[in-house]
């Protein structure tokens, strides 16, 4: 634990020295339908006045990596410019028949499943390119599942700084405390990407972390 902390501090120190030479990349990662694109849209709307991607209740709406370049956020006189990367939701299984329950025709459902599997592979491949990852979790869902554990484990093992986002705190079923309890060693910020609740804390945490 101490060694990991030291390693993280050292890598962020090295990152801070060399950051100016390259673009900072912040990635949104998480399981399917946790609100990654909604958060990406909120950040982009707040700072550049345009959206990044389409949001849908049908799982795997984001099936390709989407990037918005040169997003500048400000907090307490400090600012940070970065490229925002929205990634497809990570999943261990994708069944095209599930998409048909949302009214998609068989052919379209199969195509969506095919694209979604490629999206998962791409998202995993892109992990190493990130300077900071926002792990977006749905605070209405039990956080102790294998996808979340694999994402966090990989970030830890690769020494990539990350912040856990307990999203959807505006919903009645939300239990952000469950996420904090499940991952007590990591920084967690409870927000609602949809309503913008507590988004300022996220901006200040991002600037503080990088």
């Amino acid at each position: 634990m101490i060694l990991n902390g030291l390693r993280r501090s050292l890598s962020s120190l090295i990152g801070a020295i060399f950051r100016k030479k390259k673009d900072v990349r912040i990635g949104l990662y998480g399981p399917v339908n946790s609100g990654k694109t909604t958060l990406a849209n909120k950040i982009c709307m707040d700072w550049i006045g345009e959206q990044l991607g389409k949001v849908s209740i049908i799982p795997h709406e984001t099936r390709e990596i989407q990037t918005k370049e040169s997003v500048t956020i400000k907090d307490n006189g400090k600012s940070l410019t970065f490229n925002l990367v929205d990634t497809p939701g990570i999943a261990t299984k994708i069944d095209f028949e599930n998409f048909m329950k949302y009214g998609l025709k068989r052919r379209h459902a199969k195509q969506r499943a095919k694209e979604a599997t490629r999206g998962v592979i791409e998202a995993i491949k892109w992990l190493d390119r990130m300077d900071l990852v926002l792990v977006v979790l749905d605070s209405c869902v039990d956080p102790l599942n294998q996808v979340n554990i694999t994402i966090l484990g990989n970030l830890d093992a690769r020494n990539i700084p990350f912040i856990i986002i307990a999203n959807k705190v505006d919903l009645k079923k939300s239990k952000a405390s469950r996420i904090r309890g499940a991952f007590p060693n990591y920084k967690t910020v409870g927000i609602s990407a949809k309503t913008g609740f507590n988004i300022e804390e996220l901006y200040s945490s991002v600037i503080e972390t990088l």
Partner: peptide, 23 residues
């Protein structure tokens, strides 16, 4: 964690109508 990510990546490549992935 890296091996788990590798397993997910490799199985995703094989997803089809008959094989939908893993638990």
């Amino acid at each position: 964690a890296e091996e788990e990510a590798h397993v997910i990546k490799e199985t995703m490549r094989k997803v089809s109508g008959l094989f939908t992935g893993i638990e």
